[in-house]
């Protein structure tokens, strides 16, 4: 065997390993400093450094702002339509349906008395996640909620709201006292305290991971299915790939809704548990 050939083969292999087949999938899912419009080129985004921190505008920041813009425009129009008449018209019906859903099916049964105070937060988080999830389904867009930084931040905000709500209602001491269930033997108290405080942190952690994993997984599966066509280098797999990808895509629409619901629902549930500790 020719030494050159061996070298070429090993080089190719090394390069293939180095690049790793998943590289292009990651490229589509991860954040970047530019917005890709393949094959038309890419729009670079500005880099900003503030007090030594890198707060550059990235792709996900742009799409986050896009969801913000969409939400504000939609709800501005909706609330304006209410000024004209009490009867909702057109899109206001859909918005109202969702608002009433969050109010009556999420906040009211889980928080109970005093749920009105948390309603703006729950509505905002629901609609933000919903819009971001749906925005990620459009071609050339990015799913903000498939970034662990974003979901972790949202979960942290949820955590702060939960603790703040609990402390405000029961007082700082009363809240931490209420964490330990009644009737626990004294010698178990230190253990229970640790377990309960750990429990406080695992809840938002689970929130962050759940949203992130769900939103990422669907995209990875779609990209992997499409990628099969190129990995197997045959057209015959294309119909199967596309059919499955389409199925997953439709599933993604469902998942986008469900994840927004679950995040809000669990946040609301935890707020309810923190506010009414006796239950």
């Amino acid at each position: 065997m020719d030494a050159n050939t061996v070298k070429a083969v090993s080089d190719t292999l090394a390069q293939a390993n180095n690049k790793s087949d998943s590289g292009w999938i990651l490229h589509h899912i991860l954040d970047s400093r530019y917005i890709d419009f393949e094959p038309f080129g890419r729009i670079p985004l500005p880099e900003i450094h503030l007090f030594g921190f890198d707060i550059s505008i990235t792709k996900h920041v742009v799409f986050m702002w896009l969801s913000l813009l969409i939400l504000v425009l939609i709800f501005y129009a909706v609330s304006k339509s209410y000024k004209k008449s009490r009867i909702p018209r057109g899109f206001a019906n859909v918005a109202e349906l969702l608002v009433v859903f969050v109010r009556d099916d999420i906040a009211k049964p889980t928080i109970g008395k005093g749920f009105e105070k948390f309603l703006p937060y729950l509505l905002t988080v629901f609609f933000f996640i919903l819009t971001a999830n749906f925005l990620g389904l459009f071609p050339y867009s990015a799913t903000v909620t498939s970034n662990i930084s974003v979901t972790a931040t949202l979960a942290t905000i949820s955590f702060i709201v939960i603790q703040a709500g609990g402390i405000r209602k029961n007082g700082l001491f009363g809240y931490f006292k209420g964490l330990i269930p009644h009737g626990v033997p004294v010698f178990l108290l230190p253990v229970m305290l640790v377990v309960e405080i750990l429990g406080l942190f695992t809840r938002p952690f689970a929130l962050a991971i759940r949203l992130f994993a769900n939103m990422t997984a669907g995209h990875i599966v779609i990209l992997a299915l499409i990628g099969l066509i190129f990995i197997l280098k045959t057209f015959f797999v294309a119909p199967v790939s596309i059919a499955f990808a389409l199925f997953i895509y439709l599933l993604e629409i469902l998942v986008a809704l469900i994840q927004a619901y679950i995040f809000t629902m669990l946040s609301s549930l935890f707020i309810g548990m923190a506010v009414h500790q006796e239950h």
């Binding site: 954040d31 900003i48 921190f53 890198d54 707060i55 550059s56 505008i57 990235t58 996900h60 920041v61 986050m64 702002w65 913000l68 939400l71 504000v72 709800f75 501005y76 909706v78 609330s79 608002v99 309603l119 703006p120 937060y121 509505l123 905002t124 988080v125 609609f127 933000f128 970034n147 662990i148 930084s149 974003v150 972790a152 931040t153 949202l154 905000i157």
Partner: peptide, 25 residues
Amino acid sequence: VNPGLIFWTVITFIILLIVLKKVAW
């Protein structure tokens, strides 16, 4: 974890919360 993104997420969410609370909710 990208600290810049966390920063922007917090800013965006708080702006969204304030604006939507006033404009919509």
